[in-house]
Amino acid sequence: MVPVAVQHEKAREDDELLARVAAGNQGALSELIARHGRGLRVFAARYLGNEGDAEDLVQEVFVTVWKQAARFDPARGRASTWLYRITANRCIDQRRRRALRSFIWLDDVRDEVPSPEADAEATTAARQELAIVRDGLSRLPERQRMAVLLRAVGDLDIAAIAEVMGGSAGSAEQLLVRGRRALRDHLAMAAAGRERKSS
């Protein structure tokens, strides 16, 4: 884990950046994007299962941050938690819109994040494992997937995950535990399947 002092220092820097963003400093916004843009994009891409949607969504998130930075209150939580909360809410809205579109036009909504080097992926066990993890993630219930991604990608603790997802710490922990267990089961089943094939 990152030492607590380092975490506090980073959180304080984020707070200062948001204060500068609220004052209209575009350089501060660029710095905030450099610090959190990648994590938010990875989170959104894997939650939505669509990299293009995630890119647009994260752009919208930072435009919102630009407009609403003055509303951020450091006393109520960390800046990273606030950013992930905005992103998570947008992701949920985006999924609802996609579900509606698929209902009306019978679109086939699938995981569209490309698996890098899909052919080569099968050549090594490590890449195969990553593909299995991606598959397992896409099969998780949405809230479990969100909790797992917030922990792994956003490095948020249980309290922050609960704040982002709008629930209690206990329910956030339950979601995380169930999500991890389901992923482990999925990995174990895949490993057993591979062993059966090889034998």
């Binding site: 843009g37 990648r38 994009r41 990875v42 989170f43 891409a45 894997r46 990299e51 995630a54 890119e55 994040v113 890098p116 494992e129 990553l130 593909a131 993890v133 991606r134 993630l137 797992v148 991604l149 922990r151 792994a152 990608v153 991890r180 992923l183 482990r184």
Partner: peptide, 13 residues
């Protein structure tokens, strides 16, 4: 597992 999830989730950008 978290590390594995992160590595599996990474996208170019």
């Amino acid at each position: 597992l978290d590390r594995l999830v992160l590595e599996a989730s990474l996208v170019e950008g």
